[in-house]
Design a protein around this nucleic acid. Structure first.
Length: 485
RNA sequence: GGCCCCAUCGUCUAGUGGCCUAGGACACCGGGUUUUCAUCCCGGCAACACGGGUUCGAACCCCGUUGGGGUCACCA
């Protein structure tokens, strides 16, 4: 395929949603695959919804995923600015051109009047369509309405013909003329609507291939009509099937944890996220399932995009993450873990040295997310007083069989006090005790585990003790023993 | 409700008329490794929504039904 120019154009309403992340990913991949360019534009034409931090959050999320852009916000380019609220005069000029050409006109209905018409249409079981006034209001009419305090908007004068969209995923889709009406292109506050700004910018910025969610497919007729009115050429379109939650509903922010930042905070690797998301609506056509970003850049193609909506299966994401962690080098893992801690500053091991962190990662091998590392080894870094004893663990491991666990701890105290403090030496020592008493390792390791962690979950016991240190180990066993009395 | 779109295991999907007694992955179930929790290894269960056509032959083509989703804003 020839080099294409794609774009990702989110509106700043918070962190990057996984659906948006996939749109960004595919747009990025298509640009890379064709040797084209990928640009980032911010569509902030809604003054009410605008969130100040959102742009920075989206940029951060894209960077975390590893999706760099060649042009746009933060990096500049020939068609800037790349934030729509800074391009208002461009849109106003564009609207004026349409007005001058008689392809758009003013309208003054209030929101209440429109709502009433909509309600009436619905009561009548009919779809609401704006009825074009005849004759069309003049500029003087608009000025008068404005003077009376009425809202003045601009609507596009639609030709009233069926419009067919050529979509690379869904094929030709025709929207009947009866379904169209003269939609608003400039709001009463002077801001352009999404449709107007989007079309004007895609043209101004040279975008040749538009990838976006399927929810826009039924509205693309507006963009095509706008382009015809301006005399713009048509770009190529590829609408992506939607990502639904496991209940089959559209993934919404309200249900929580569906933005990439929440997965970052939960201890997922960006490479796993990218790999998993890439397979939602796209398939390489082979049995291969694990891909790096670079491999995706080499293999992605719009021909292999599917049409059916996909459900977002967290279990599968978890499996991808497990594999990505297993495949990561120690250095990569350390860097990712530190990134995780940077967004989880309250974590017990936040602030520990690289050496310690590396060690923690080693002894917790098998973890599926970085949160698992905290769940499994976080107690080591807690103050001794913060260790809470799980009643069931205490019962099962210490109290059962006439308190044989407690007895074991009593036996162990003096031994550990004199022990050489290394994993090898400790292992040898405890193995000796097992042989001597003719018992299994569980009988000695478990009581120690519960005493030091409060639970039956920890890294291998020798590693745990070494990381904890002799002093804390003895203090915790002592504390556990004294609680028993 | 009008319009648009979609339809293979519970989930993501492979499959473009014969290579399909439908393949892979996740989940699930069973077993194994293990000082805990995990990881890991082995095995198993499991789908072409339904009904009509077309064809020598249909998961693949056509029509209908059903089901699901999207969209009908001065939000994007």
């Amino acid at each position: 395929m020839d080099a294409v120019k794609t774009r990702f154009a989110p509106s700043p309403t918070g962190h990057l949603h996984v659906g948006s992340a996939r749109t960004a990913l595919f747009s990025y991949l298509l640009a890379r695959r064709t040797g084209g360019t990928f640009l980032l534009r911010i569509e902030d034409t809604d003054r009410a919804r605008h969130q100040e931090e959102a742009v920075a959050q989206i940029v951060e999320d894209l960077r975390w995923l590893g999706l760099g852009w060649d042009e746009g916000v933060g990096v500049g380019g020939p068609a800037g600015p790349y934030v729509q609220s800074e391009r208002l005069t461009i849109y106003r000029d564009a609207v004026q051109r349409l007005l001058d050409a008689g392809k758009a006109y003013y309208a003054f209905e209030s929101a209440e009047e429109l709502d009433a018409l909509r309600a009436a249409a619905e009561a009548n079981k009919q779809a609401f369509r704006y009825v074009r006034p005849d004759p069309l209001p003049s500029r003087a009419d608009a000025d008068r309405a404005a003077a009376e305090g009425r809202p003045v908007v601009v609507r596009l004068l639609c030709p009233g013909q069926d419009v067919t969209i050529h979509d690379e995923v869904f094929g030709d889709v025709t929207i009947p003329a009866e379904q169209q009406d003269d939609f608003i292109i400039q709001k009463a506050d002077g801001y352009p609507t999404y449709h107007l700004a989007n079309v004007v910018d895609d043209q101004a910025m040279g975008v040749t291939f538009i990838l976006r969610g399927q929810e826009f497919l039924g509205q693309t007729w507006r963009h095509k009509l706008l382009r015809e009115a301006f005399g713009y050429p048509e770009p190529r379109y590829a609408h992506l099937p939607l990502i639904l939650d496991m209940q089959g509903k559209k993934l919404s922010k309200r249900e929580g944890s569906v933005d990439v930042f929440s997965f970052r905070r939960a201890g997922y690797l960006p490479e796993a996220m990218v790999n998993f998301i890439a397979l939602l609506g796209w398939s390489p056509g082979t049995k291969e399932e694990r891909f790096t970003l670079a491999e995706l850049e080499a293999q992605f193609s719009v021909e292999r995009l599917g049409k059916a909506n996909a459900k977002f299966d967290r279990d599968k994401l978890l499996a991808f993450n497990t594999d990505a962690i297993a495949a990561a080098s120690p250095e990569r893992l350390l860097a990712a873990f530190k990134d995780f801690l940077s967004v989880n500053p309250e974590a017990p091991m936040a602030g520990q040295s690289d050496e310690t962190l590396r060690r923690v990662l080693e002894v917790t091998v098998g973890f599926r997310t970085f949160q698992d590392v905290i769940d499994k080894a976080g107690f080591i870094f807690l103050p001794d007083e913060a260790i809470a004893y799980d009643e069931k663990a205490v019962q099962k491991v210490l109290a059962k069989n006439d308190g044989e666990g407690w007895a074991m701890l009593q036996t162990l105290m003096p031994v550990l006090r004199e022990a050489e403090w290394s994993a090898e030496a400790l292992e040898k020592l405890l193995n000796g005790i097992c042989e001597q008493q003719g018992i299994g390792m569980g009988k000695v390791a478990q009581p120690i585990r519960v005493a030091v962690s409060g639970t039956t979950i920890s890294p291998a016991i020798f590693d745990t003790l070494v990381l904890l240190g002799r002093e804390k180990t003895l203090a915790r066993i002592d504390r556990c023993l004294s609680r028993h009395g």
